[in-house]
C-alpha cells in the first residue's frame, strides 16, 4: 500500500470511531493513542477496521507496530510487498 492509500484508509476508519480526531495535527512519531485521545478499545476498533478495509490479517502481537503513523505506514507498505 502506498502512503496515500494507507492515510486515506486510516482517515476513513478513524471517522467512524473518533470523528473529532484531526490527523493533520499528528506527527510521524507521535503515539496515535495519545495524540488523538484513543483509549484501548478505540485502538482495538481501529485495528479491526484497518484489517477489514485492507484485508490484511493483523495479529495482536503486531499492534505495537501501529502505535505511530510512521509505524503504520511502514507496516502497510511492507504488507504489499509480502
Amino acid at each position: 500500500m502506498t502512503k496515500d492509500e494507507t492515510m486515506a484508509m486510516l482517515a476513513e476508519v478513524l471517522a467512524g470511531i473518533a470523528p473529532e480526531a484531526d490527523l493533520t495535527t499528528v506527527t510521524a512519531k507521535d503515539d496515535l493513542r495519545e495524540a488523538l485521545d484513543l483509549d484501548s478499545m478505540d485502538f482495538q476498533n481501529l485495528v479491526i477496521g484497518l484489517h477489514e478495509r485492507s484485508g490484511l490479517p493483523i495479529p495482536e502481537e503486531d499492534y505495537p507496530r501501529l502505535f505511530t503513523l510512521e509505524g503504520m505506514l511502514a507496516y502497510f507498505a511492507a504488507a504489499k510487498r509480502a
Partner: peptide
C-alpha cells in the same frame, strides 16, 4: 451519528464518551 460521537468525545474524552 458521527457528529454526535465526535461531539461527545470532544466534551467527555475517550474514557467517558459512548462507544
Amino acid at each position: 451519528r458521527r457528529e454526535l460521537l465526535g461531539h461527545a468525545r470532544k466534551r467527555l474524552g475517550a474514557a467517558v464518551a459512548p462507544k
